[in-house]
Design a binder for these strands. Structure first.
Lengths: 252, 252
DNA sequence: TTTGTTTTAATTGTTATATCATTATACAAA
DNA sequence: TTTGTATAATGATATAACAATTAAAACAAA
């Protein structure tokens, strides 16, 4: 008693979790990965092998493998020559985890959209700096495709989203790409709304201007325009109920 | 034969995956969550209950529960009254998944730092707009604490990181908070380096100025200063090997 | 009543064994 | 070369059992 450490009022305790054998296996593999002892594609072994190596039952190994698989650390194949292997990076899985966590934490649409503005603004900025000839060709092609579907709201929305994705990809930053794809997944229901011809034309005009800035490598202008673009989309989306303003729909 | 669909050269088939029973259970629970049929804390049941409800073995239910647990969708408690419950949002888990995916995808430090600039820049901007009286008090307190540990590089680094976190929290945006915490986890090894007294004093000066902008609700100035701050930290971090410049260490 | 202790029952953790479904490989047949 | 077939490896699933953990209930003491 009288332990000063224990009586500190603001002491916050780390949750104590009895580490199961399965979790210990998970941690061992995870640590090995971060210590550079594994490369994507490396074979860990079959359930039987691993059960023998760790001296535990197959079920316990299965528990660990299921966790590692869900974390995206390993991939499991059945059949001869199958077993558990270190996975190639799979960012789709992360997107799903992000969506789940936002859902559980009750993160609002507005909060997510502010994050989207941050991601896409920086994406446009870096795209202007780093875009390759191939990036410009793809962006140009997507602009042309969008031009052909201006009257089909669903198709235009789709083309617009592809344009935004292509910009992020032109940034050459895989961290941004992952974030963008994750967010697109999360905000999908909102963006599935229809765009009128007028809105489509306005968006297309902005997209053309974005392309011009990126081609000219004017990163600051690209960033500012992208943010304005997203903020105006958001303003429309939050301007009231759909009934208030039938034309107040977003496109991309 | 002669099926036009099948002979189309560019036809790409979606891979057909036999969905395991365990995965079907995972998807059912996941869909129910997104359809609003579950709230955090809701009891799913024990392994035995669920095995009976889904008419599968306990092993299969365990596989599904292990996956759902790793996704952060459920929490599992052992003992009487235990079982699987819908989890409260746990953003730490997401941080780990992000770190794993970046590791596997081979995302570079530079890419991650560009993302960090985007997140923290927007965080500072929103903090200036949304900061509460409590936020200002905490930021002020952290500045004072940092003042007392200027000569201890490790302590000052720690205090600086807490200051940055407090700014993000002042933004009131849980999506940004989640991203920041995730990134901090990922870039931890870099930031663990030591800061000299000179660097600490410079950082402290900038932090004081950041506080002033946030208090004055000057969002644009706060954003710009934060970005400059991070870019200069990054410039030092990438200026060469540690041997080249012993003072080129980062602090926060 | 309040507090501390013991008991009990529920539940996950782990092991063992067995069968089924899936897959890669080797090899034979056309 | 192409196609089919047998074989072995491997995960997926099921059943049964026991150990370890934990919450709740019952009980005792102050």
């Amino acid at each position: 008693m009288g332990n000063a450490e224990l009586t500190k009022p603001n002491q916050s305790w780390a949750p104590v979790r009895a580490n199961s054998v399965a979790n210990q296996i998970v941690m061992q593999v995870r640590e090995a990965l971060f210590n550079g002892k594994f490369q994507p594609g490396d074979l860990l072994g079959s359930e039987k092998d691993l059960a023998a190596q760790f001296d535990v039952s197959r079920i316990t190994v299965r528990d660990a493998l299921r966790t590692l698989e869900t974390m995206g650390i390993i991939e499991i194949r059945v059949g001869a020559g199958g077993g558990a292997r270190i996975a190639e990076g799979n960012l789709d899985y992360f997107s799903d985890a992000l969506a789940v966590q936002f859902k559980l934490a009750g993160v609002t649409e507005r909060e997510i959209l502010d994050l989207q503005v941050a991601i896409e603004g920086t994406g446009a900025e870096l795209a202007a700096l780093n875009r390759s000839r191939e990036n410009l060709e793809e962006l140009s092609e997507l602009l042309g495709e969008a031009e052909n579907v201006m009257d089909s709201s669903a198709d235009f929305t789709d083309a617009g989203q592809q344009f935004h994705l292509a910009i992020i990809e032109a940034s050459g930053n895989r961290a941004l790409i992952a974030q963008f794809r994750a967010l697109r997944y999360v905000v999908w229901p909102q963006n599935a709304q229809r765009a009128t011809r007028e809105i489509a034309e306005n968006a297309q005009k902005i997209h053309h201007q974005l392309y011009a800035y990126i081609e000219a490598q004017d990163s600051e202008a690209a960033r500012k325009l992208m943010i304005d673009h997203l903020v105006s989309i958001r303003a429309v989306a939050f301007s009231g109920t759909a009934a208030d303003d039938a034309t107040g729909v977003i496109c991309c």
